[in-house]
């Protein structure tokens, strides 16, 4: 049973290497984005005449936002578009009759894509950030804690995408809700402007919402003002809590959606 899922993952990794022009431009776009961010934030710090803004140095802020872009590209698997395609073509029906779980199957495929992204886009991006821009490496225990933080962030990101994809059972097209989701997630998670830059009261609320778990939690480990262990463990725990809540929500939602499909089909 498990073998079936790993095969799906392996195939997705392989197919992510197929389109070379696609990857060339994706890498190029990602790198240009990082360079632009460097100039933007460099100008912000230079214009202010200060070395620390909102408790963050230029290096910390740049690491936060540039790793944020890298994380976005890493986690972006367009699962909702894929599911939407299955719903529109009717292929999704096939999945109801097969002896595997649709969500687990989609996840296996997305995991393969993420591994592909990791090798082809994330590694070059990190090389630019740490070797070209000479950003300081985070210390070992921050790196160690960042591993579960990134994994949980990806799981959350996948489940939100899956949720949005299922919503296509009700709406006709996907662009609006998918792009709208991206806007909300990126703004409220700190991916556009680091959470520490938000007004204190707003930031304190946002830290508790699931969006912060996607970007701020992993990013604040790599970059930003150093955190003590208790805070870090607290945030990782909050990530897990949101993960469980959203998982149950999505499963219930899928049940609801598949009933609607049966009604429409019968």
């Amino acid at each position: 049973m498990f073998r079936a899922y790993t095969t799906v993952t392996k195939n997705a990794v392989m197919s992510s290497f197929t389109y070379r022009a696609h990857f060339l431009f994706q890498i190029l776009g990602s790198l240009v984005g990082i360079v632009i961010l460097w100039y933007l934030w460099h100008s912000v710090y230079q214009g202010s005449g200060q070395t620390t803004l909102r408790g963050m140095t230029f290096e910390q802020t740049f690491l936060y936002v540039s790793l944020g872009t890298a994380l976005f590209v890493l986690m972006r698997t367009w699962a909702e578009w894929f599911i939407n395609g299955q719903i529109r073509s009717g292929d999704i029906v096939v999945h109801f009759f097969r002896p595997y779980d649709h969500m687990a199957w989609t996840f296996s495929e997305n995991l393969g894509q993420v591994i592909g992204n990791l090798i082809t886009i994330t590694v070059p991006s990190l090389a630019v950030i740490f070797l070209v821009f000479q950003m300081p490496w985070p210390d070992a225990w921050h790196l160690l804690l960042a591993v579960p933080a990134v994994i949980q962030a990806f799981l959350l990101s996948f489940m939100i995408d899956y949720f949005i994809g299922i919503t296509a059972f009700w709406t006709q097209s996907i662009w609006g809700i998918s792009a709208g989701k991206d806007v909300i997630v990126l703004l409220l998670s700190g991916a556009m402007v680091p959470l520490p830059w938000f007004p204190d009261a707003v930031r304190d609320v946002l830290l508790w919402l699931p969006f912060a778990s996607l970007y701020n939690t992993p990013l604040s480990l790599f970059a930003g003002a150093p955190l003590d262990l208790i805070t870090v463990l607290g945030r990782l725990g909050l990530q897990t809590v949101w993960l469980v809540i959203i998982l149950f929500g999505v499963r219930a939602y899928f049940g609801l959606a598949s009933r609607k499909l049966t009604v429409a089909g019968g």
């Binding site: 909102r54 662009w175 809700i177 792009a179 990126l186 830059w197 007004p199």
Partner: peptide, 29 residues
């Protein structure tokens, strides 16, 4: 939904700039 998303995207940019300018008085002058 699409129109709302479009407006949300523009608003998000304005909000980011607003947050940025809470801390700094000017950007490249």
């Amino acid at each position: 939904i699409s129109t709302a998303t479009m407006l949300a995207g523009n608003t998000a940019t304005v909000v980011s700039l607003f947050i940025l300018f809470q801390t700094i008085p000017q950007l490249a002058g």
